[in-house]
Design a protein around this nucleic acid. Structure first.
Lengths: 205, 205
DNA sequence: TTTATTATTTTTGTATACATTTTTTATTAT
DNA sequence: ATAATAAAAAATGTATACAAAAATAATAAA
């Protein structure tokens, strides 16, 4: 259904719409966000709009009342965080990951080889999510969650060019986790993210 | 001056007051936070109070409309994050830290030995802050900033018992940074935070 | 007494109005 | 024409009112 979902709060609805409009480029970086304008556009009052804007500010999608225009530095900063957190998470995964999740991880690799672009993107996201959850650390999970939007925003420009070896790297990480080799899993994950960053930087540079 | 500061917004004022009341124990863990009650208490309307509450929720000081009661798990999660981020920051500091900051770092160590309890606490906080800033990564800096309140809340119970070797450890970290030994600085920082965590857990356990 | 069910009250969510601040535009002086 | 200032407009911050939802208390049935 495409009509607005009356079962959720106005705040939640407007947040979701705004967020999507930013992520899909409908509201490009630099766009001024004016409460009243958004409010009348979406058919809500300013009050819930205000709250969604605040939430988007916390996620870094809105800065100074404008849609963020992430810099190369932002990209580096976010990836450096991911390298630290997901590296650690991969190590945890090697120690703790239950069989069920291990299978799910492998499915992501398989879809990465055979799926449609859409499916591949989902699978990649899921691959990382499973590993992050293995950290069993809600602070980390929430932090990475908050960073997702910004990273996605950047990735859009990159995503159509499928990066070579991406799935191979995932498979290697999967193998290391399966073999319960924490050191190796962490190291591979860090290299994987670094390569991803380098690829992004190369494309936009 | 103790009277409310009219130069700042109601949102900012109420945020600061609420935050402090939570941190100093005036609003102990588990206390139900009711917008209307706080509003009339502080002499503002619900609108700005609502916003401050949201902000405190993002910081983790309010959960489900109640003042957070951090668990041992929360403590561990937060410290694990700090170990990763501040370990990395210490490494950066060894590479990049300007002379001026290096001196400031040493002053923190000195105050740690000679100062009053109040001064020591401030110096300890500053010591870590200088190193975190050396990461030159705003995402990291902001993340650690957001975690401070929760950590402080927990620390309150521990802070009166001065932990042995704390200042010695700071000095060692300072020395490693001064010697531009990134590996060592990171390693010492990680051990330092782990020791801090263990001490906290021991006290509350 | 305990458990369901229904009133009642409290609290939150949202709309609206107005006050304050910020931004833009117009005007004047250099 | 440029910079400084004043006037106007726009946008945000805050208060208040009411509607919806959630929590609590009261009542009835098992």
């Amino acid at each position: 259904m495409l009509e607005t979902d009356r079962s959720r709060s106005a705040t939640h609805q407007s947040y979701a719409v705004l967020r999507d409009r930013i992520l899909n480029g409908e509201l490009p970086g630099g766009t001024k966000i004016v409460e009243e304008k958004i409010a009348s556009e979406l058919g809500f009052s300013r009050t819930p709009i205000r709250e969604s804007i605040r939430k988007l500010e916390y996620e870094g999608l809105i800065v100074n009342k404008r849609v963020v225009k992430p810099t190369e530095k932002d990209l580096r900063n976010n990836f450096q965080m991911r390298i630290l957190l997901e590296g650690y998470a991969a190590q945890c995964a090697a120690s703790f990951l239950p069989e069920k999740d291990l299978q799910a991880l492998y499915e992501c690799v398989e879809i990465g080889r055979k799926g449609t672009t859409e499916e591949i993107m989902d699978a990649n996201e899921r691959f990382h999510e499973i590993i992050v959850r293995a950290s069993n650390n809600s602070v980390m999970i929430d932090t990475i969650d908050r960073m997702q939007s910004l990273i996605y925003l950047f990735r859009k420009t990159v995503v159509l060019n499928q990066r070579p070896h991406l799935i191979d790297e995932h498979e290697q990480i999967y193998e290391a986790i399966k073999a319960r080799d924490g050191e190796k899993a962490a190291d591979l994950m860090k290299r994987h993210l670094q390569a991803d960053l380098d690829f992004c930087l190369h494309i936009i540079g």
